[in-house]
C-alpha cells in the first residue's frame, strides 16, 4: 500500500524547469501557497502556469518564475488587482494566453477527458481569438451548423492543489462550499500533488464529511503534503478564512519597490515553519 506522504520541497524536486504547471483554487481562495513558497525556495523557473489566478501568480511573478501564464483573470478578490502581476505585464516580461474563464475550464475538461478540444461559445466575437491566433473554430455537423470555438486541451505536466484533508494514500477531501476546479486540474495533469491542512486515516477522512466531499481518489494523486496553514494568506474554509490584513500587507509591500525586500526577508527567506511563525508574529503585532 503506497504511502504518498512527502514534503513540499520533495514535490518541487520532482518538477523541472520549463514545465506546464496547473495551480488549483480560485483567485485568493484555497491556493496551494505552501507549495508555491516551496517553488520560491527552489531554482525552478521558465514555467508555464495555468491558473484561475490569485497571489500564487503574483508571488511566482515577483520571483520571475513564469514564462507564460494561461489565465482568465488574476485577482485577490477583496483587492481587485495583484501588483506583481500588473508589474510584470506592464514591463512585458511574461507571455500570456488569456482566455475567458469558462474556456479555461473547457481546456482542463478536454485534457481530463483525453479529448483534443471541447467546443464552447465563449470567446467568439471577443478579442480572445485575436490575442490567441492558434485558436480554431469547429462547425456543428448537425442541422444547426453552429460555429463554435474549439478550446484545445490544457494538458499539464503537474497539478498543485490544496484541500482540507487527505489520507496517506491520496484520497482527498474539501470541506468548504466550493471544490473550485481542483478535480479538473488533477485529471488534466500527468502528476498531481495535493497539500492538505491535515493528513488523517481513511476512516476519519470519510467520517469527516459527506461522501460527495471526497473530491479526488487516490488513483489521481501522486503526492500528499501535510501543510497546516498551507493556503495562507488565501482562504481554506472551514479551516480558516482569508487573512485580509496579511493580504493587504502583501499588496502594500508589492506596490512599493522599497518595501518589497523587507517582505521577502521576513516571510519568504526561510522555510515554511519560519513563514508560519512570522505570520503568527505579524498577526500578534497587528492585533495589539
Amino acid at each position: 500500500m503506497a504511502d504518498k506522504r512527502m514534503t513540499a520541497d520533495e514535490v518541487v524536486a520532482e518538477l523541472s524547469d520549463g514545465m506546464t504547471i496547473g495551480i488549483g483554487g480560485w483567485g485568493s481562495r484555497r491556493k496551494p501557497m505552501a507549495l508555491v513558497r516551496a517553488i520560491l525556495r527552489s531554482s525552478l523557473t521558465d514555467l508555464t502556469v495555468v491558473s484561475y489566478g490569485g497571489p500564487d501568480v503574483g508571488l511566482l511573478a515577483s520571483a520571475r518564475r513564469i514564462r507564460r501564464l494561461v489565465f482568465g483573470f488574476v485577482t485577490l478578490d477583496s483587492i481587485p488587482f495583484d501588483p506583481w502581476f500588473g508589474r510584470v505585464r506592464q514591463a512585458g516580461e511574461i507571455a500570456v494566453t488569456e482566455y475567458d474563464e469558462g474556456m479555461l475550464g473547457a481546456g482542463l475538461s478536454a485534457a481530463a477527458q483525453r479529448l483534443p478540444f471541447l467546443p464552447v461559445r465563449a470567446g467568439l466575437g471577443s478579442d480572445v481569438p485575436r490575442l490567441n491566433p492558434e485558436l480554431r473554430t469547429v462547425r456543428s455537423p448537425y442541422a444547426d451548423g453552429e460555429e463554435l470555438l474549439a478550446v484545445p486541451a490544457l494538458r499539464l505536466d503537474a497539478a498543485l492543489v490544496h484541500l482540507n484533508r487527505a489520507d496517506a494514500r491520496g484520497n482527498t477531501q474539501y470541506l468548504g462550499p466550493d471544490p473550485y476546479f481542483d478535480e479538473l486540474f488533477a485529471l488534466a495533469a500527468r502528476r498531481c500533488y495535493v497539500s492538505v491542512e491535515r493528513v488523517v486515516d481513511t476512516a476519519e477522512l470519510t467520517a469527516g464529511g459527506p461522501v460527495q466531499s471526497l473530491l479526488l481518489n487516490r488513483s489521481v494523486v501522486d503526492g500528499v503534503v501535510a501543510a497546516p496553514g498551507g493556503a495562507h494568506f488565501t482562504s481554506a474554509a472551514p479551516d480558516y478564512g482569508r487573512d485580509e490584513r496579511f493580504q493587504r500587507h502583501y499588496v502594500e509591500s508589492a506596490k512599493d519597490p522599497e518595501a518589497w525586500p523587507a517582505f521577502v526577508d521576513r516571510f519568504l527567506s526561510g522555510d515554511e515553519d519560519h513563514y508560519q511563525a512570522q505570520v503568527a508574529a505579524f498577526a500578534a503585532e497587528e492585533g495589539s
Partner: peptide, 16 residues
Amino acid sequence: HARPARQLLGVRGAPG
C-alpha cells in the same frame, strides 16, 4: 495587450 500601459483583471467571464 502585449505590454499594457495598465494591466486590469483579464477578460474574466465577459466573453462567455
